[in-house]
Nucleic acid binder design. Structure first.
Lengths: 147, 147
DNA sequence: GACATATAGTTGTTTATACAACTATTCAAA
DNA sequence: TTTGAATAGTTGTATAAACAACTATATGTC
């Protein structure tokens, strides 16, 4: 039996990602409830900068799976919120390196706690082994399609 | 060991749904390549109408996990493309029932083939058992959060 | 029947996304 | 060294999303 066997009714949620939409929305609500002015999309950019500062916009494109115009505008908005700064690279004047402001750094602790809390709520009752399988599958899907 | 154990590096893709984004984008490209003027979001609305015509906008909200303004505008655009028609309900004049036009019906065969093809590409090399686990987990996540 | 409340849908506003077209800089080859 | 291609980023345009505020209709209770 091949893995090409899909019942039609099961197609949909794979394509439209209802589950991850629900997770993202839940985290957004937590962020709003704390009075923090930040979208999930902006959060996802900050997330990568918290891991490693000074990424170029192109590196942020790759990391967040967004195209260049999307990152341009997200960085625009993050700059307007005073959370990041564009710094022109010395080596290559085409490149903007993105650095966190103090305010941007401060958001890490607060929001990462909310993100973990959100995932715990989302995955309540799911055995660790199943979560692992799920992560693997999503990774394979991503690898199959990113080319 | 509880399932609350997450390494930070694994948080991200669960929240932002990179895999489903990739699937949706792949299907969108197939649709465009065929010269069909239709977004994935519009497709996801049509998908439910192909299963059952005459749904109300509210029912489409529930089915597609979108809010009412989003459905209003998607139906606006689908009507503009001559793919669906709003028909006022006889019983309750608040309700619009959404029906497919002939053109809207015609899209089913073409695009469902592309959707299945896309899923097959996405899940290439993934054993059926793992796909099942994945579907279960995503369903639990969705149920955990939809309340 | 009248009034409060719930439900269905629309409109306004801001943010985000895809795609195409553009500028500026770098690199590589003639 | 000049020219052409590649790379980094921006801007224009259309579609979509969330949230709040709104209109219209229905329902239920007094």
């Amino acid at each position: 039996m091949s893995n090409n066997q899909f019942k039609r009714g099961e197609l949909y949620s794979f394509i439209t990602g209802k589950a991850s939409t629900a997770i993202a929305r839940r985290l957004q609500k937590k962020i709003n409830a704390r009075g923090i002015n930040l979208t999930i999309e902006q959060w996802s950019v900050l997330y990568h900068l918290w891991k490693k500062e000074g990424l170029s916009q192109q590196e942020l494109c790759n990391a967040t799976f967004r195209d260049k115009p999307s990152i341009t505008r997200l960085v625009d908005n993050l700059e307007r919120l005073n959370l990041v700064k564009r710094v022109a690279s010395d080596n290559d004047r085409r490149i903007n390196l993105i650095y966190l402001t103090k305010q941007g750094q401060k958001l890490e602790e607060q929001t990462m706690m909310m993100a973990e809390e959100t995932l715990n709520e989302a995955l309540k009752g799911v055995p660790v082994e199943q979560i692992d399988v799920c992560k693997q599958v999503l990774q394979v899907v991503y690898d199959n399609l990113k080319s």
